[in-house]
C-alpha cells in the first residue's frame, strides 16, 4: 500500500507539476481549426473574412507553445529529473504516434488501391458492370494511370525516371547518413555526428526542392493537377502529405542539430535524437512505398 516502504527497488517516476503549455496548445489548435475551416470556405467561395488571419494566429501560437513546452522539457531533462522508465514512456509514445501516422497514410493508399483495382475497372465494365459502362460512361476505357477520366478530364502521367528516381536515391542515402550520425552519437564521435546530421538535413532540403520542381513540372508541362481525377488526387495527396512530413522531419533534424552543437545529448541519453531519427526513417519508408505504388506501378 501507499504508506509502506517499497521492498523492491523502483524508479521514481517524474510527474510534472501544473503546466500552462497544454492549454495554450489547445487554444492554438482551436484557432487553427476555426481558421482553417473558415479560410477554406473563404478561399474557395470567394468570400471575405478572417479565416486566414485566425489560422496564422493559431500556427504562431502553436509555435510559441512548442518552443515553451520543449524548453521546459529540455530543462527538466538537463537537470536530471528523468529516469529510464520515463525514457521508455517517451520512446513507446513516439512509436505509437508513428503507428498512427502509418494508418493515416494507409487511408490514402487504400483509396489508391481501391480506385485502381475496383472503381476504375468497374467503370470500364469489368465484373458484372457492363451496363455501368454502356449506359453511364460509354466509351470510357479503364486504365492506369487514369489520364482520361469518365467525365473527360485529360492529363498526362508522371514518369518514375528523372526527378522521382533521384529523389528516391536522395532519401535512401539520407537514411543511411542519419544512421551513421546516430552511431556517431552513441560512440561519442562528435565530428561524425555533426557532419552526418548536417548532410542529412541538406539531403532533406534538396529532396524538398526537387519535389517543388516536380510539382511545377506536373502543373505546367503535364497538365497534371489536383483536379485531374483520381490519378491526380491520389498523386498529390500522397506525395503532398509525404512532403509535409519531410518538411516537419527536416525541421526536427535542424532543431536536433542545434541541440547537438549545444552538447545536449549523451551517448546513453538522447531520446529526442532517437525519436527524430525514427520519424525520419518512417518518412523514408513511406517514400519507398510511394515510389513503388504511385510512380512505378
Amino acid at each position: 500500500m501507499a504508506q509502506q516502504e517499497a521492498p523492491v527497488a523502483y524508479e521514481k517516476y517524474y510527474v510534472p507539476d501544473q503546466s500552462p503549455w497544454p492549454i495554450v496548445g489547445a487554444v492554438a489548435l482551436f484557432l487553427i481549426a476555426v481558421g482553417a475551416g473558415n479560410f477554406t470556405i473563404e478561399m474557395t467561395k470567394g468570400k471575405e473574412g478572417f479565416g486566414g488571419y485566425t489560422l496564422a494566429a493559431g500556427l504562431f501560437l502553436l509555435m510559441v507553445m512548442l518552443v515553451g513546452w520543449f524548453k521546459n522539457q529540455i530543462d527538466e531533462s538537463m537537470s536530471g529529473l528523468y529516469s529510464a522508465q520515463l525514457g521508455r514512456s517517451y520512446r513507446q509514445g513516439m512509436l505509437w504516434f508513428i503507428f498512427s501516422e502509418v494508418m493515416f497514410f494507409a487511408a490514402f493508399f487504400g483509396a489508391l488501391f481501391y480506385a485502381r483495382m475496383i472503381a476504375i475497372p468497374w467503370l470500364g465494365g469489368a465484373s458484372n458492370n457492363a451496363m455501368t459502362n454502356e449506359v453511364l460512361w460509354p466509351g470510357f476505357e479503364a486504365m492506369w494511370p487514369l489520364v482520361s477520366t469518365p467525365g473527360g478530364i485529360q492529363t498526362q502521367a508522371m514518369g518514375w525516371m528523372g526527378l522521382p528516381a533521384i529523389n528516391t536515391v536522395i532519401l535512401l542515402i539520407s537514411s543511411v547518413t542519419l544512421h551513421y550520425a546516430h552511431v556517431g552519437l552513441e560512440q561519442a564521435k562528435r565530428k561524425q555526428l555533426t557532419v552526418m546530421l548536417g548532410v542529412t538535413i541538406l539531403l532533406g532540403c534538396i529532396f524538398l526542392g526537387l519535389q517543388v520542381q516536380e510539382y511545377v513540372h506536373a502543373y505546367r508541362d503535364l497538365g497534371l493537377t489536383l483536379q485531374s481525377g483520381i490519378y491526380g488526387n491520389t498523386f498529390f495527396l500522397l506525395t503532398g502529405f509525404h512532403g509535409l512530413h519531410v518538411t516537419l522531419g527536416t525541421i526536427i533534424l535542424i532543431v536536433l542539430f542545434f541541440r547537438v552543437l549545444k552538447g545536449h545529448f549523451t551517448p546513453k541519453e538522447h531520446f529526442a535524437f532517437q525519436a527524430g531519427s525514427w520519424y525520419w526513417h518512417f518518412v523514408d519508408v513511406v517514400w519507398v512505398m510511394l515510389f513503388f505504388f504511385v510512380y512505378i506501378l
Partner: peptide
Amino acid sequence: AGAVTMVLTDKFFGTHFFDAAGGGD
C-alpha cells in the same frame, strides 16, 4: 482523419475521390 480530409478536398478543392466522373467512387 483520412476520410474527412478526402471529403474536404472533394467538396472544396476539386478532387474526385468519391465521384465516378473523375474515376472515384
